[in-house]
Design a protein around this nucleic acid. Structure first.
Lengths: 239, 239
DNA sequence: GATCATGTTTTGGTATGATCAAACGCGCCA
DNA sequence: TGGCGCGTTTGATCATACCAAAACATGATC
């Protein structure tokens, strides 16, 4: 009522309209990234709606990942990125992987994607990519005796694979995988022998990429990840 | 305040607690799929919180995709599925693909995934899978003269590829792709010649799978999708 | 002058009650 | 039995108030 901005929807809830307004402002840059939203009472006055509506709109923004709303602080505008996209599904995914074979299904897609990545790397990796991979591999090797450090460098090595195609979606996918699968991996007891084996697998993948041999690269990768899965399965049982 | 359930969080907002309560009830099945939530005022009474809190909690449930809330109706419980997971990111993705190269980046990941799929299909497709592919291919061929129908059967053919690995995540990914990329494809002027070319590409992919030749299958798939991309790019310009 | 303790203001979180309009149910009438 | 109308339920919104924590200003202390 008495509202001006009507474009398409015959009846939008007031909160939805406000949401769209802010969404637009965030996209257009009127509300810059990192900036705090105006106080609720100010918004009330500006747009002539009640605080109820304002709160619902802000809450919606927060749920969609457009703003970051810590409990008692002002909501901070966060420009949407591929990372935030995956974060918004975190809840749902968290429940889904609790289902039968949930983790396995997710992990299988990871195998599939990384298989594609190493093939692509074997065929198209530039010298810079190779150097980055080598550096990551070296750091991984140096950390064999430090399991926590090894875990980190392990992830970092895989991360490099996701960066090769220069597609910003892919690193976000990797981040999502590590975040979602972390509960199972990070708590794994890590032993020197396992670290050694994993590092050897990384080396095999790297050398196959270096040799421009996609089939071997994929085979090494699949062997590596299947092995990792077996370890997890042995540790946690069928999940 | 006066709340009893305190497990980990030093200070949880009341709305968050309620949200978790309902989340738990939905997961455990106390609130069955398709069932409507109790009236707000009843929840108020049951849990001893204000309506403000109830509305925020319900809104959060709706935003996370746990319930479906049409404007003036009671929220309906919807058990989380892989589909809902992708739906919840719809908003963010919609904005992301408006960025420079956004659509291309998304499409490239699709190429990568489908490349992996056809390789896998070539290596592991069962007789049933082959039959499904053949059926989809035939239907696609029969629709060459009906562009709308061709578009549908085109998607259906690709969908079969996502079903081969028997991983429920993959069909959801396909659904997401078609949903997100549809705005660009469905509005494409479709011509008989193009349909014919696309059907030929599908046939090539199918035959490579039949021949258990992953390299050819992948090559055909990449050629097919690259071609499709060129068509879109020619139509819409650089996006 | 810089740092820290302290008090004041701002502001988010919650509660309460009222109003309105749309959905819902129920009984009436054909 | 099958619509139709009316009262009831209930979601959406508003207005107001209160509390507590954060943000801010202020002054004391070294």
């Amino acid at each position: 009522m008495t509202d001006s901005s009507e474009t398409c929807q015959p009846i939008g809830r007031a909160a939805d309209d406000l949401f769209l307004t802010f969404e637009e402002m965030i996209n257009s840059g009127s509300l810059a990234d990192g900036q705090a939203l105006p106080p609720e009472r100010e918004i009330v006055e500006t747009y002539g709606v009640s605080r109820t509506v304002v709160r619902e709109a802000v809450l919606a923004l927060a749920n969609k990942g457009l703003v970051e709303a810590r409990p008692r602080y002002r909501p901070i505008v966060r420009k949407p990125s591929y990372d935030t996209a995956f974060e918004t599904v975190e809840n749902v995914v968290g429940r889904l992987i609790k289902q039968r074979d949930g983790v396995k299904n997710l992990f299988d897609t990871r195998i599939m994607i990384e298989a594609g990545l190493v093939r692509q790397a074997a065929l198209e990796a530039t010298k810079v990519d190779i150097a980055a991979l080598r550096a990551a591999l070296d750091r991984n090797g140096e950390a064999i005796n430090d399991s926590e450090q090894f875990y980190q460098t392990d992830m970092a090595f895989h991360a490099v694979l996701y960066e090769v195609p220069r597609n910003p979606v892919l690193p976000a996918i990797h981040k999502a995988y590590t975040s979602w699968l972390a509960p199972h991996w990070s708590q794994m007891p890590r032993q020197f022998a396992r670290n050694q084996g994993n590092h050897a697998a990384h080396t095999a993948i790297f050398e196959a990429i270096l040799a421009r041999d996609p089939d071997t690269a994929e085979a090494s990768l699949r062997s590596h990840l299947s092995d990792a899965w077996s370890q997890v399965e042995a540790e946690f049982g069928n999940i």
